[in-house]
Simulated scan of single mutants.
Amino acid sequence: MLTKAADSSHPEKDHAKKPHDPLHEQSTAYAAVLGGNGQIADGWPRVDQWADSLEPMFESNKETISVSCAESGLPNNSEDETVFIKDAIYQVGKSSGVDARFIFAIVMQESKGCVRVQTTNDGVANPGMMQSHDGSGSCNKGGVIQNPCPRSEILQMILDGAEGTPAGPGLKALVAQEGGTTEVTSYYMAASAYNSGAVASSGNLGQGGATHCYVSDVASRLMGWTDGPSLCAPDAIGQISAALWDGDSSAGHTDRDGTSTTTTTRILALAHGSSSSSLSAPSTLIVQSSVTWTSARASHSSTSLACRREGN
C-alpha cells in the first residue's frame, strides 16, 4: 500500500528562513524565461524559491490534471487516480531520494498528469506519465486503455521515470550524474538530460536535441506555474545566457521630499525572427516597464515598452 511521506532530499531544507523576495514570489503564471546553464549566479531559482512542498504544488495543478487526458480524446482521470499519482510521487520521492517536487514537475511537463497518456516512440518507446525510457508502466499500451488505471500501474510509471529502467536512466541517476542533490543546478541539468539524452556540449540548457524550452518550463513549474502560455520561445531560448524574470521588482526608492517610486517590469514576449514590423531582430525581448510614483499631492503612473536584442 502506498504511504504518504515527507518530501525528501531537498538541496536546501530550511524553508522557515525564506527571505521576502517580491521579484520571485510564486504565481500560477509562467515565472521566468530561464536561459543559460542553470546556475543560481545567472538568475536561476534557488530551491527555496520552489514551491514549499509537493502538497501546495499538487493542489494548484489539480484542475489542469483533471482535464489533461481529454486533450488527446482519452478518458480524464478520476479523483482516485489523481490521488494515486500524489501518493506514488511521495513514496518514490522517499525511496529514490529525488525531490518529490522535481518528480511532479517532470510529470506535468511530460503528460500534465494524464494516467492514460499515449506512448511516444521516436526510436525508443516512452510510455507513461513520465514518458520514461522504454518503461513498463502504462495504462495505454498498444491502444489498449485501462480505465480505471490501477494504483500499481500508476506507481510503476513514477518508478520508471524516477528510478530508471533496464533500458535507460531515470531522474535519480541523472541528478547524481550531474552533481548530486546538494546542488540545485544538478536538477536543472538532469531535466535537460532526461529530455534530450544529454546536456548540450555548450552547457546551455536551451540547446541540444528534443524540446528547447523543457528546462525553463520545468523550473517555472517548480516555482508555481500551473497552466497558461509559456513565455519561452523554442527558437530563441538557446541564445540566452541568463534568467529573464517576469514579475514585480522590489526596486524602488523614496526621495527627500517624500515622493516614492516603484518600478514593475514584465516580460511580454520573447520573439525570434518575428514578422511584426519593428520586431524583426533575430531574437527580441519585449519588456513592459511600469513606473508609479506617489507624492504628497498625487499619484502618477506611466507605462512603456522596450525591445532588446538577445542574440544574433
Rank of each mutant, 00 (worst) to 15 (best):
D257Q: 12
S304W: 00
D246F: 12
D255Y: 09
T259R: 13
Q239T: 13
A296R: 05
R266K: 15
T254N: 02
S202L: 13
S201W: 14
S280N: 11
S220D: 10
Y214C: 04
A233Q: 12
L305T: 08
A306C: 05
A200D: 15
L285Y: 06
S299Q: 14
H300Q: 12
L231M: 11
S274Q: 01
T284E: 12
Q207N: 14
L231V: 09
Q288F: 02
G252F: 06
S277Y: 06
L205P: 02
A190F: 05
S275W: 00
T264P: 00
A296Y: 00
L268S: 02
R297L: 09
H212M: 12
L279M: 02
R221A: 09
I286F: 01
S230I: 05
A243E: 01
G203R: 06
G273I: 04
A251D: 04
A233R: 00
Q288N: 11
R266M: 04
P282G: 12
W225Q: 13
R308G: 02
S249F: 01
P282D: 09
A198Q: 15
S249K: 02
L270D: 00
Y194C: 07
L244C: 03
G273R: 09
L268C: 00
S250K: 11
P229S: 13
S230K: 09
G273P: 02
R297I: 05
L268V: 07
T292K: 12
D235F: 03
L268T: 05
I240H: 04
G197P: 12
H272M: 00
Y214R: 10
A193S: 15
G206L: 03
T294Q: 15
S276C: 04
S192R: 15
W293M: 10
C307S: 13
I240D: 08
G197Q: 08
S274Y: 03
P234M: 11
H300W: 05
S290C: 07
T262E: 11
D217F: 04
V291P: 03
A198V: 14
